[in-house]
Amino acid sequence: MSRSARPLRARIHLDAIRHNYRRAQSLAPHSRALAVVKADAYGHGAVAVARALTGEADGFAVACVEEALELRESGIRGPMLLLEGVFSPDEIALVDRAGLAMVVHCREQLDWVLAARPSRRLDCWIKLDTGMHRLGFCPSEFAEVNARLAACPHVGERVAMTHFARADEPDHPYTSVQIDAFERALNGARIGRSLANSAAVLAWPQTHGDWTRPGIMLYGVSPFAGTGSNANLEAGELRPAMTLESALIAIRDLKAGEPIGYGGRFVCERPTRIGVAAIGYADGYPRQARDGTPIAVGGRPTRLIGRVSMDLITLDLTGLETARPGDPVELWGRTVPAAAVAEASDTIAYQLFTAIGRRVSRRYEEA
């Protein structure tokens, strides 16, 4: 994509990503950590993020073989796990050539692995459904599945894994239920263990096992709601990895009673100075963002007023009399937490990051 003159970009702070990965490692010092870079590294750019973590990360996790091959073709080496496994038996040849590990979560995948004729031994992660109820074998199936893979001469390392449904609620008992179901299924089996996502890395140290899988925490966002838990104190050590910024392109002065934008959702209660910034829902800014959603202009806090349109937003410049067209507007980043924007938009930071549109250029920065 050619460089655009439109003043809109996502600045990706590679030093922050390394810091956050090291934080995950420090919280689980006896575990290896797969950096989760699926969905284009949660919108941060998988190739650039993986390169920044090369030499630091114990390995990487992606959703599918296409994501893995992009990294391999960009020179990223080391362990790499397909979190959804393969979608057809033909993909096992790609797994073999690229030196990937794969999740096995169903009977079809198990049969494909056992019938394969790879040139090397295939590392397989056995996924158990302990209560998430998306993917995975029933816990009662583990012994059989593990035995069949163990007896297969072309299967290499085996790891048992599960995924938590409510680890981001540190006081909820459901995670303990899942942990118990996992351990009962393994019944002391000598096999690697991987349970912990970002929330579990922070809040459930008993789940750290042999491999952790930090995801959203790599990008500087707490997986927890609110600010009261010890886990959030730990998450406070994270550094935002993306600053999404635009600029003021117009300023208007409106009288009391004047509506702003589509549908006139916001009506000025007093004479109001408004700014217009070059970003909209086509760029990934959430259309459902409410009036009052935090924004910063020139590092000073203000708020969204009026409905988000395809290419533009309007914001309150009351108290920012020195603001001028061209001044930087931070949508989220080091001044405006992405989690605060997500909360004001009835969504989560994961969706904000992964919804960034193709018109937003990325700029990669070190400290």
Rank of each mutant, 00 (worst) to 15 (best):
H154A: 04
L83I: 07
A165K: 09
D123Y: 12
N197W: 02
A143F: 05
V155H: 01
P89Q: 00
R134G: 12
H133Q: 14
A196V: 08
F142N: 01
I191F: 07
T162P: 09
E73L: 15
H133F: 15
A165C: 08
R120C: 12
V113E: 10
C106M: 13
E84S: 07
H163D: 01
P153V: 12
S119D: 15
E108D: 14
G156Y: 03
E70D: 13
L94H: 11
N146C: 11
G192V: 10
S74Y: 10
V145H: 01
E144L: 15
S198T: 10
F182D: 01
Q109T: 12
I76G: 05
S74N: 15
E183V: 09
I92K: 00
N197K: 08
L81A: 01
G156K: 02
A181S: 14
D123R: 06
A185E: 00
H105M: 03
L114H: 09
L135P: 06
T162K: 02
R72H: 15
A165E: 02
V113L: 13
A181R: 09
D168W: 13
L71K: 10
S194P: 04
E73P: 06
V201G: 03
L110P: 08
R190M: 08
A200N: 05
P79A: 05
R120K: 15
D90L: 13
W112A: 00
R77P: 10
V177Q: 04
F182R: 03
L195K: 00
G156D: 03
V113Y: 04
H163W: 05
Q109M: 13
E73I: 11
G188N: 06
R193I: 05
A101Y: 01
S74Q: 04
S88H: 12
A115L: 13
F137L: 09
F164L: 02
A143C: 15
S74V: 09
L110D: 07
E157N: 13
A143I: 08
R77I: 04
D168S: 14
P173R: 02
L122T: 14
S194N: 08
P89I: 07
A93F: 02
M161K: 10
E73C: 12
Q178H: 08
A167Y: 00
T130Q: 00
E157F: 11
R148D: 02
I92L: 15
E183I: 03
I126R: 05
S119L: 10
V155W: 04
R72D: 05
S88L: 06
V104S: 02
L81P: 02
L100Q: 12
S88Q: 15
A150P: 05
V177P: 01
P173V: 06
E169T: 07
V113F: 07
N197A: 15
